[in-house]
Design a protein around this nucleic acid. Structure first.
Lengths: 345, 345
DNA sequence: GTGAAAGCGCTAACAG
DNA sequence: CTGTTAGCGCTTTCAC
């Protein structure tokens, strides 16, 4: 056995001593350098195995100035959209040899501010951030220099890369689909009181544009604001809509979770979907492919979004000199039972 | 401006120079030590603010031997059960001042092995691991000394802390519930061909015990194996069951996702749930509270599991000398529409 | 109360 | 091809 008979982890020095070589040689072997004799290599390798040597990443990072760790900051991990996105980001990052550390902001201003302030102190090489509460001003004010890629709406032409989909166009497409089905009393669930929420604002805009195009009025009572984008909020909003003297015959929900909540509420009230009320969601979460009925939805290309974000970060880490990117990821509209009913029936 | 006029991040030395004190004093201020004059403190603080100083966590870790980062290794982040669990773990860890880094294993042997081998170098202080493919033998073989807490089934009395629920009892309760409703042809979805899967084995055992207690036979054709625990697997399994000459009048699915898939399949075949076939799941994911019909399910106390796991790790990090803990978290059975139908109808 | 110096484990630079 | 040295930024002695 080597010097580290007890539990204390072995260092390069221990391995070098056991193998009878210098630390540099061990380092060369560990890092897979070519200029090492096979005999030396195998001798070192044996020492490594014997001591169960693992490189100390903190020391390496201190020396090299990078950790190969990036942070992914998002509101809630148990919101399916973000969970699916996180899965893709982690997968893409892994291909680059990066580890992902998760920051859960709960969409709270102070948490998001901390993330932006670089709370992770040089621990991370880069940050992929999906802001909810923070707006353009907060981002402009940022002093931390950690490379940043923003996910979600394009809030401004700031100093950060940005990956988003065309919210207005997608919202217009979703609403137009309902119009095309002959629906005339089309409501929207997901407006947000806070002016910071670009997402809600843009989707609302697309909704209004589509109505205008169809010559339909925008009825204020058909635009329902919500606090969060959870199932319960969708259900509550639907309750309000169905209580109206003239309830809508279609509802465009700004995310799938609310759409699912709204469908559940319709079911409880005995209102058949899509016959009496058609429902469209947004996010294309797996759940909507198995719900009863299945959910028509706007499909942002999540894998694409994830890979673009990771690629941007990679470019930024390569040489910090490129101009900010802004990219619009593609989307499609998946038409399912919640608007057109069951085929062959 | 201080020495770091350009973008290079400021170090303790820079701050010390600007404030006209030694690095030690700055360190004292940063770490909130008491023995510092108010005047000194404020002077240092001003320098910190001016230079936007952030401590270098890698250097601190190298010196202190700990990073306050833990890893959470689980199969897939977009499986709602794990997403919800991850959320809780991150929240609990945060209360301890820890950051969580996610390792996604996809349930693959090699990935799980890497996690266990301490691939993270000394980057992480501890590991919370939910194994799928690895069994007792692999865990026994582990050489890495990073404190480990296992989530899920108690595969063995090994050298690691363990948090799980009583799978046999919960499976028995779920099956007994179906028996109590008068169902007599009760199937099970989720058996696993691999002998390593303790989870599937234990749940199957509980199912069989409950049938035996009720004097019902265990029909081999009613026990359906699956590859993964996804919605699609549940749907496929249900297809097989409904194709039987004598289809079951109840199905116990080993997780919610498969139950949801099974419900969808029943719907597509025009088989009413729960009238013709009652369905029980396992995990109590949020989705099952809004599905149509809502899903009867075994509810493991996820928050409890998360906090126990984090607490174990904390104890282990405090002084590495305690004996391994094994704790059984509580569970309940949530009875919903998928077995008893809609109340008041 | 504050300062000076050593060293955590590693790799970059330069010798040999 | 391999060895030596220095130093990343921080905290931890130990002086003062």
């Amino acid at each position: 056995m080597g010097r580290t008979a007890s539990g204390d982890p072995a260092s390069l020095k221990h391995v070098a001593a056991l193998a009878g070589v210098s630390v540099k040689t061990v380092s060369n072997v560990v890092n897979g350098y070519v200029h090492v004799t096979d005999t030396t290599r195998s001798r070192v390798q044996r020492a490594i195995d014997e001591l169960h040597y693992r490189p100390n990443l903190a020391a390496r990072q201190l020396r090299q100035g990078r950790s190969d760790v990036i942070a992914l900051a998002l509101p809630e991990l148990d919101l399916p959209y973000f969970a699916e996105l996180a899965r893709s980001v982690i997968k893409c990052a892994e291909e680059k040899g990066w580890t992902v550390l998760i920051d859960q902001t709960d969409g709270l201003v102070e948490r998001e501010q901390l993330v932006l302030d670089g709370i992770r102190g040089r621990l991370i090489d880069g940050l992929i951030f999906s802001p909810i509460a923070l707006g353009a001003a907060d981002l402009e004010r940022r002093r931390d220099t950690t490379p940043l890629v923003l996910l979600g709406e394009r809030v401004f032409d700031g100093p950060a890369d940005h990956v988003a989909i065309d919210n207005v166009a997608a919202a217009r497409a979703a609403t137009a689909h309902l119009v095309g089905l002959g629906r005339r009393r089309i409501a929207a669930i997901g407006a947000q009181p806070l002016p910071t929420s670009q997402t809600a604002h843009l989707r609302l805009q697309g909704y209004q544009e589509a109505l205008a195009e169809a010559g339909l009025p925008v009825r204020p009572e058909y635009v329902v604001p919500v606090d969060r984008y959870h199932r319960g909020d969708g259900a509550a909003a639907m309750r309000r809509l169905l209580d109206l003297p003239e309830p809508p015959d279609a509802v465009f929900c700004f995310n799938d979770l609310m759409a699912l909540g709204a469908m559940r509420e319709a079911y409880e009230r005995g209102v058949p979907v899509p016959h009496d009320v058609a429902i469209v969601g947004w996010d294309d979460i797996e759940e909507g492919r198995y719900s009863i009925p299945t959910l028509t939805t706007v499909c942002p290309d999540k894998q694409r979004i994830a890979s673009l974000a990771v690629d941007f970060l990679a470019a930024r880490l390569g040489d910090g000199s490129e101009p900010p990117h802004e990219v619009t990821a593609p989307f499609t509209l998946a038409v399912r039972e919640s608007t057109v009913g069951r085929p062959g029936r």
